[in-house]
């Protein structure tokens, strides 16, 4: 009986985009919830990093996570595709629902989750392979059977890095500049055709020009993908994000360190112009953090 509500939920979320498959920008599609966090608490060992997060991430939108260092925004991001599994001692309470299923259900395969929810990391991390193989790797292990040349070109074009590497596809991924490497990593994430792309401070190691290009890439991508980005750069959040979640950290009595929590989640415009919480206002106006 316990599985019944879940299956009906997944059926509902599958059906909602169906009535308007032609107009992709129809509000019925874009306003649907892609992922939701229900009372999520994440701990490293006995230390709680972030507590009681409730969040509904909308589909085909860019959502930014902002907040001071140590508030748990990266931790929450990594929880969305079970990347935290790789960190020893990390545990999660609550539910992270994607496509009608709790991805922390013991029956769920984390590998399958990561195929549908891709990730771009803070530091560009191309594989020590050729540019072509960097893109083809993910697609191949996901059982992609189509025209690989075409997929490589399409992915690199979507990540706005095709022009810079079309003449050196057989060279090492390291031969590119930092900004190009990061866009290669975005192309690599796109190539597996995920539904969601998580970005953990993707521009923090890049110069302003490369940052601008990656932001343009994000604007292109959000038509087809749900993007969730962690950023320390508030201007970046204003430029790219439709929705913004502000996290903060506070000391708790009896605890050894600060515990992160979600303060406010709303449209980016609201967060930066008329936030509902004093802490949000203080942070976005530069009074702390």
């Amino acid at each position: 009986m316990a599985t019944d509500p879940k299956t009906s939920l997944s059926a509902a979320s599958l059906q909602s985009p169906m009535p308007s498959p032609v107009s992709a920008s129809a509000p019925t599609v874009t306003d649907s919830v892609c992922m939701s966090l229900e009372n999520v608490t994440i701990s490293y060992g006995s230390f709680e990093a972030v507590r009681n997060v409730h969040l509904e991430l909308p589909r085909s939108r860019v959502t930014a996570f902002i907040g001071p260092s140590g508030c748990g925004k990266s931790t929450v991001l990594r929880a969305l595709n079970r990347m935290n599994d790789l960190i020893p001692g990390c545990s999660l309470k609550g539910r992270v629902v994607f496509d009608g299923h709790d991805i922390y259900n013991p029956k769920v395969d984390p590998v399958e989750v990561r195929r549908r929810i891709g990730m771009v990391f803070q530091k560009p991390n191309p594989f020590p392979k050729t540019i072509y193989e960097n893109i083809a790797f993910g697609a191949r292990i996901n059982g992609y059977k189509g025209d690989m040349d075409e997929l490589v070109e399409r992915s690199l074009r979507k990540a706005a890095v095709w022009d810079e590497c079309k003449d050196k596809l057989q060279q090492s991924g390291f031969s590119l500049s930092g900004g190009q490497q990061q866009r290669l990593c975005i192309a690599r994430a796109i190539a597996t055709e995920p539904e969601v792309i998580l970005m953990d401070e993707p521009c923090s190691a890049l110069d302003p020009i490369s940052t601008l290009k990656i932001e343009e890439t994000m604007h292109e991508l959000k038509r087809n993908y749900t993007i969730i980005i962690v950023t320390h750069n508030m201007q970046q959040a204003v430029r790219v994000a439709d929705m913004t979640a502000f996290y903060n950290a506070e000391a708790v009595e009896g605890g050894s360190g600060k515990v992160g929590y979600l303060v406010e989640f709303a449209e980016t415009e609201v967060i930066f112009n008329s936030p509902g919480q004093q802490a949000t206002l203080d942070y976005v106006s530069g009074r702390f953090g």
Partner: peptide
């Protein structure tokens, strides 16, 4: 580098594929 492992897991590679291919 740890980032390389994350990168491989991030595109949906299993542990075996990550180890043998990356």
């Amino acid at each position: 580098p740890q980032e390389l492992r994350w990168g491989a897991y991030g595109v949906g590679a299993s542990r075996f594929v990550t180890i043998t291919r990356v």
